[in-house]
Amino acid sequence: MIINNVKLILEREVVSGSLACDNGIITAYAETPSQLPGAIDGEGGWLMPGMVELHTDNLDKFFTPRPKVDWPAHSAMSSHDALIIASGITTVLDAIGVGDVRDGGHRMENLNKMINAIRHSEKHGLNRAEHRLHLRCELPHDSTLPLFEQLMCNPALSLVSLMDHSPGQRQYVSLDAWRTYFGGKYQMNDEQLDAYQADQLRLAARWSTPNREAISAWCRQYHIPLASHDDATHDHVLESKGVGSTVAEFPTTEEAARSSREMGLQVLMGAPNIVRGGSHSGNVAARDLASKGLLDILSSDYYPASLLDAAFRLATDDEIAMDLPAAVALVTRNPAHAIGLTDRGVIAEGKRADLVLVHQPREQVYIKNVWAKGRMVF
């Protein structure tokens, strides 16, 4: 296969030319057009590597599209995969909550069903994107460690994150902020919220520390990449570094992001934060971190299409010293390398032909075609 008449987004530059691949591998690229009649005409669009998503709970939405609605696994998985590939994501880590029972237990009920759907669809070649597993471990629960130990040897497991959403922790250092969020989310009155808060504090006091230590020990033993989550202070980052975290997911302050970078953790922020112009939770803006050189990876989190949009927004922001190759690396090379996938994420000879053709007729970028291992899937 040859793709002609494109602007190739390479690791350090953008060049106009053509690209060839065979058996799912990039075999060559050139700064000249191909003369072969069978070449695909890219019509002057950008050709970039397929995007790599490390943290999205998008799958959860398809399994439970509404409260108390349990959707069939095959339909849920195929619909999720279609949205992922249409967003230009060719490798995705589907984030599954372990021990998080705050949403009425549906995540626990769906846990095995979702993991089995990922495994079955990958085994039988039903997916267009490559789906891997990210376990989001909610530390303040007695069920978290037993569930993790059942799942930690799953061959698809590529990332584990340690989360603590209890009152007074990380994202919810402010108890008022915690009460406002959960009181609104679960429509609790003051009495119900008081009881819920007391229960969460009790669980956190009993389980957060031992679960953090046990799960991180397993990850170190089995060489599973580990991520922190919502670190807010220098001390939080010290703790995360101490247990072996290599990725800092969604630090809530510049202090935590800067400390993470100084301690060798790659800083991951939400692409929706870039698109919306700030955090919906009032935390540090991803754009501000990018402007200070403190951003390594973008995640679509809850909105898959935000990855491409965010990368191009950063590249065209006059106040951020980031060219298009550097911005694209935030959603391709950097997340891939963070979990040890060095066979993808860049346009280079010998790498996987996971590719996205992007056009921008006006200000908005859109995806025209996607190839996974050299096969057109969108």
Rank of each mutant, 00 (worst) to 15 (best):
V267D: 01
P167S: 04
H229P: 04
S166H: 00
V284C: 05
D235M: 12
R261K: 08
G293F: 06
D288H: 10
Q266V: 01
L203N: 07
S240K: 07
L162P: 15
Y181D: 12
D164S: 09
A217G: 11
L162C: 13
L201I: 12
D176T: 04
A198I: 14
S174P: 10
L175F: 00
R276M: 09
M188W: 13
A177G: 11
T233V: 11
H229I: 04
R179I: 04
D235W: 03
G183L: 03
W178V: 05
M163V: 08
Q197G: 01
A232R: 02
Y172G: 11
R170F: 00
S299A: 15
H236N: 15
A195T: 05
R202Q: 06
A205K: 12
A205Q: 11
V237A: 14
I215Y: 00
S279R: 07
T252I: 14
A256V: 14
M263E: 14
A204F: 03
V284K: 03
D176K: 02
Q187R: 04
L193G: 06
E213I: 08
A256H: 14
A217P: 09
A290S: 03
S291N: 08
S299I: 06
I274R: 07
Y222M: 07
A285V: 02
S216W: 00
V247T: 05
K241S: 13
H280T: 15
S158E: 04
Q169G: 13
A248L: 08
R170K: 02
Y186H: 12
K241L: 12
H280P: 04
D190M: 09
R287F: 03
Q197C: 07
H165I: 01
L268Y: 11
R220C: 13
R220M: 10
A271W: 01
A248N: 11
I215E: 00
L289I: 10
G168E: 08
D296W: 08
D164P: 03
T252C: 10
R287L: 09
S166T: 01
R179H: 03
D190Q: 11
H223I: 11
T253W: 13
G264C: 10
V173K: 05
E239I: 15
A217Q: 14
E254H: 02
S228Y: 10
S260R: 02
W178L: 03
Y222G: 02
G278P: 14
H165T: 00
T253L: 05
A285D: 05
Q192H: 15
D288I: 08
V160K: 00
V267M: 02
M263F: 14
D231T: 02
Q197D: 01
S174L: 10
R206T: 09
L238Q: 13
W207R: 10
V243T: 02
S259P: 00
C219Q: 00
L298S: 10
L203D: 06
S300P: 04
D164H: 02
N273R: 09
E249T: 15
S245N: 08
L193V: 05
L226G: 01
M269E: 04
D231P: 10
A257S: 07
L238V: 15
A257H: 07
L162S: 11
V243A: 04
A257Y: 06
S299E: 09
P225Y: 00
Q171D: 14
R202L: 04
L265W: 03
M163G: 08
P272D: 05
D164K: 00
L238W: 03
A227W: 10
Y186F: 15
D230T: 13
G278K: 06
